[in-house]
Design a binder for these strands. Structure first.
Lengths: 194, 194
DNA sequence: GTCTATAAGATGATAGAC
DNA sequence: GTCTATCATCTTATAGAC
């Protein structure tokens, strides 16, 4: 989930995916060139095609990397005792990334915003990232005894993603902090009135 | 604000801006080529440069077109009697665009998500679109007697933009309908407890 | 003001030596 | 498996005829 600078001591394939993820997060998938990715991963340009048949294949690998990042993140939250605590941990994760989001946007949200418009498999796979988060949140709300768990889950993710968009557009990490505080209070109010 | 198909009977400059706005909304600014814009506007490619010195100049014109669209939209809402009614009219506008958003995303949100990352003037100008909406909403919340008007305005725009992102990514206009209903109830609850 | 032709550069992808 | 060299294409932008 966190964008670590590409670790040079991984295998070439891993380095390419890490560099691509970082560059795509920074500038978008369309404007990121294979030459940039190859240079950042310290791999010769021609060699990229040994690991990935096309540019879209590389982007696909980035999406899968994000998917496993999300899975790992949600697994961490599962350790919290109450559903409300899990949901607040999710919101707080975006608050922790506020500086990164203000500079580069949300790694998941930007990807979905850019690739969802494409009608191909890449667009569908990207949407799965957001869907997994929504579904996980819905499970938590259901565990809180809420009948409207699906709508609440959408509201939570919409609030987080919308806050990230504003934080990035206005380049102000304070927005994320402020909004996550509001979100946490909202979750608490749902927990007590259930 | 609404993406009308480029009207062929406007002046060439207007046709170019309308076509560019439509194509950029559909596929993003980076992947939209001047050849596509020229073809859609029925203007020879080389002639584009008589009206716009560079591609960025054309994008700039699209941003200004969106800005005046927003201004016109907000002027419409001003006719409502209460601040709460104005805010709900704003939210309902996105609900009315739900089908378009599900297919192509929010015209403002997509543009901001893509261009905000750029550090140049274009990025700053795009952010102004969202800022004008936030500031207008803050004025309404302040008129409702809310001290936390700025935070509330951010929450409203975050909810609308986040809902649009989810609606587009998951290609489900029902999400927008559902979330706007929630937003309207939220505004009503603020109006009565102020 | 309008349009054709094309220059100049970048980019995805491949061929083929090692 | 790895890398160099290069092709074919696309894209922004310009030159210059009308």
């Amino acid at each position: 989930m966190t964008d670590s600078p590409p670790q040079i001591r991984l295998g070439k394939r891993e380095r390419l995916v890490a560099s691509a993820a970082d560059l795509i997060h920074r500038q978008g998938a369309a404007v990121t060139t294979l030459a940039q990715v190859a240079a950042a991963a310290d791999v010769p340009l021609g060699n990229v095609y040994y690991y990935f048949k096309t540019k879209d294949d590389l982007i696909q690998a980035v999406i899968e990397d994000r998917a496993s990042g999300i899975a790992g993140l949600l697994a961490t939250f599962e350790q919290r005792r109450t559903p409300a605590a899990r949901l607040k941990a999710l919101a707080r994760h975006w608050e922790n990334m506020r500086e990164l989001i203000a500079e580069q946007g949300c790694p998941i949200g930007s990807l979905c915003a850019e690739l969802s418009q494409r009608g191909d498999d890449l667009g569908r796979d990207t949407a799965t990232l957001l869907r997994s988060l929504v579904e996980w949140a819905a499970i938590q709300f259901r565990a809180m005894g809420r009948r409207d768990a699906d709508t609440l889950a959408m509201s939570l993710l919409a609030a987080v993603q919308g806050s990230a968009l504003l934080t990035n557009s206005l380049h102000d990490p304070g927005i994320m902090t402020d909004q996550v505080r509001t979100i946490e209070r909202w979750i608490d109010s749902l927990a007590t009135t259930a």
